[in-house]
């Protein structure tokens, strides 16, 4: 059991967890992830290490609800725990010694880029963060990002905070402004990472994206996470998760991630059903 020391609701669908995991905290490098299980019959799901504190022995993860397991995870509170947590997994992000690195984050990715920004902080690198959300309330960890990055650009679809538009439009603007950009790291929904890749390709700027195929073990043992990069099959859990954005077969990845759509829908339905029943039962006990 890995105790959850502290939680914070960031948005209606994202939650931050500070977990007691001293060995992982000590070893964690920017860009790596952990695999966790919520309960003893649960799935193993990969989540990025947002932050880690080797002294306190804690790792921070941010989970966005997309299906049954992430919902179950986000129902956990302070003092409860994850049944299992293994890591840090994957290769660390390469950290440039100088130049200008732009980290782009959407959804949980806004949190996931934090570890990379923090990793770059002691270096001579200039850092910018571009994070996107639908609307102002869904912007997460802005304070932490501002501490870690030299510049933070918030983008919202409705313009309720910062720049009105997509992260890629902001990115395009930044590149067009003439400020040199040496590397881009994008983490978030596949559509976003794909759009970032398409934006940077004409400019020839090195771009890394963090791929999120379905995983099981996370140690190279199953091959569920295989992705095609530069025409070759790679295992994202040991060769990645960060890969050169221009070389990725995104269509294949999007398609493979839909493999269990029916089962995921069934699991979500069952979970929501059980929640409803539990709430109804609780209401019946407390009475009107």
């Amino acid at each position: 059991m890995f105790e959850i020391l502290h939680t914070r609701r960031l948005t209606p669908v994202t939650k931050l967890f500070e977990v007691d995991a001293p060995l992982v905290a000590k070893a964690a490098q920017p860009g790596q992830f952990v695999i966790l299980r919520v309960h003893g019959r649960g799935e193993r799901i990969p989540v990025t290490i947002t932050d880690s504190d080797p002294e306190a022995g804690t790792v921070t993860v941010v989970i966005q609800e997309v299906g049954a397991t992430s919902k179950m995870a986000n129902a956990l509170e302070d003092g409860e725990g994850f049944h299992d947590l293994a890591g840090p997994l994957g290769e660390a992000a390469p950290l440039r010694e100088m130049g200008h690195v732009v980290c782009v984050g959407g959804g949980f990715g806004a949190a996931a880029i934090l570890s990379i920004l923090k990793g770059l902080q002691p270096k001579a690198t200039r850092t910018s963060a571009i994070v996107g959300a639908r609307t102002a309330e869904l912007v997460i960890l802005e304070d932490r990002l501002r501490e870690a990055a030299d510049d933070v650009h918030i983008c919202t679809d409705d313009g309720s905070a910062g720049f009105k538009g997509f992260v890629t439009e902001k990115l395009e603007e930044l590149i067009a402004s003439g400020e040199p950009v040496d590397e881009i790291v994008a983490i978030g929904p596949m559509v976003m990472m794909r759009a970032v890749a398409a934006t940077t390709a004409p400019h020839g700027i090195a771009t890394l994206v963090s791929l999120d195929p379905i995983m099981i073990d996370g140690t190279g043992m199953c091959g569920a996470c295989r992705v095609t990069v530069a025409g070759e099959t790679k295992f994202a859990c040991i060769d990645g998760p960060l890969f050169d954005a221009t070389q990725i077969d995104f269509d294949e990845l999007v398609r493979r991630n839909k493999s269990y759509r029916d089962e995921e829908a069934e699991a979500l339905h069952r979970y929501d059903d059980a929640q409803c029943r539990a709430e109804a039962a609780a209401a019946a006990v407390t009475g009107p």
């Binding site: 019959r41 649960g42 799935e43 049954a68 099981i216 269990y260 089962e263 995921e264 069934e266 699991a267």
Partner: peptide, 18 residues
């Protein structure tokens, strides 16, 4: 085999892995 043996997928949805 891992899905079935380690993760208990043959008992989906009682076990979460399909």
């Amino acid at each position: 085999l891992t899905r079935i043996n380690l993760m208990g997928a043959y008992r989906f949805p009682d076990y979460d892995t399909p």
